[in-house]
């Protein structure tokens, strides 16, 4: 006889109220499937290879940033600077590319791609570390700190470029385009990066001490602190990761567009946060995951695409996405009330 069967006052929670099925992520996955079916039914152009590849590419940029954002949201924070970080890192990477191409390093194979990209990612990590330092060590509000950083990074981008777009240049430019805008097994590379990043993040969140501590910090910071979790380190790491995902996205966008304009990704922060929240990340902290981030980003892109195919005025997109954000948290709230 099993241990628990001696107790009469506790019974196993039924499967649809547990784990993945109980969360907002499951509802949004369902919504995603329904919208895809509707789009496929009403528009002959939805299920064409070209359109599906198009959707998957467009979605991957927001999805990659949402993965990073989800990590920050799980700690109970927010990062408004991601769009600007995207632009600053993209622009600086392009400038570094030109500088390296004109230096003696250009003789080393692939150095004109690897060195600027690594430099760009280090810049992204440094910006994240600054955000994290102010938030975790000096206890400033994440909202205000990253709002400031949004302005700083966008401002610097314009100062550095004088508003002119920066294009990838040099002997490694073909390799750069292949790495940022090519295909692997028929899939656009950004999609592959997103899927790999999502799987790695999923494992890290649920199967490592780091992930456990991230959730603990978001669930109850005092509890985490008192049980010896290094709260500041966990938080700073989250902002570094979020910034890195934004920086990497900026570099990918530069490869896709063939140039990094100074206004690159402006306003993306709202779409990224929307994707994370629609996917089930809770701004109060402690809840969220990569599946949600990816589903949220996919949902937004499929809606955008359907509206385009349906020749609906593009400005309806924002209104519709806004409504879905509110609907998503509303459904979650009602479900919570029902459970009590």
């Amino acid at each position: 006889m099993s241990m628990t069967s001696e107790f009469t006052n506790i019974s196993r929670v039924s499967w649809h109220r547990r784990g993945f099925f109980a969360g907002q992520t499951a509802y949004m996955t369902l919504a995603f499937v329904i919208i895809c079916v509707l789009a496929a039914t009403f528009s002959g152009n939805f299920v064409t290879t070209g359109n599906l590849l198009n959707i998957s590419r467009n979605f991957s940029y927001i999805a990659l940033m949402s993965l990073g954002m989800t990590v920050v949201i799980v700690t109970g924070g927010i990062d408004l600077s991601v769009g600007s970080v995207c632009a600053l890192v993209a622009v600086c990477t392009m400038i570094a590319m030109r500088a390296v191409s004109n230096s003696s390093l250009a003789a080393i194979p692939y150095a004109t791609v690897v060195v600027p990209v690594v430099a760009g990612l280090l810049l992204a990590a440094a910006i994240g570390a600054v955000n994290g330092f102010f938030i975790a060590r000096l206890d400033l509000s994440p909202f205000v700190t990253t709002l400031g950083m949004l302005s700083i990074c966008r401002g610097l981008t314009y100062v550095i470029t004088q508003g002119r777009g920066q294009a990838p240049t040099g002997p490694g430019v073909q390799a750069f385009f292949a790495a940022t805008n090519g295909t692997i097994a028929g899939l656009p590379v950004p999609v592959v990066y997103v899927l790999v990043a999502a799987v790695v993040l999923g494992i890290a969140l649920h199967h490592t001490v780091w992930g456990r501590h991230l959730f603990a910090v978001g669930g109850s910071e005092p509890a985490a602190m008192r049980t010896g979790v290094r709260v500041s380190r966990v938080k700073i790491g989250a902002y570094v990761l979020c910034s890195l995902s934004a920086g990497a996205t900026g570099i990918l966008l530069a490869g896709w567009l063939g140039s990094a304009p100074a206004n690159l990704a402006s306003g993306y922060e709202l779409r990224v946060i929307a994707a994370s929240v629609i996917g089930g990340a809770n701004l109060a902290g402690g809840i969220g995951g990569p599946v949600g981030a990816v589903i949220g980003a996919a949902l937004i892109e499929v809606i955008r695409n359907s509206l385009v195919l349906g020749r609906v005025d593009a400005y309806w997109q924002d209104a519709l996405i806004g409504s879905i954000i509110i609907l998503a948290v509303l459904v979650d709230k009602l479900r919570g009330l029902q459970a009590k």
Partner: peptide, 28 residues
Amino acid sequence: AIAENLTASANIFLGREMTRSFGPLRFL
């Protein structure tokens, strides 16, 4: 000092998690 979003066992082991190694990686 309990985190409500974690399981009972995650709370008990918080800050001193048991891990298993797979090569250089450590998993819960």
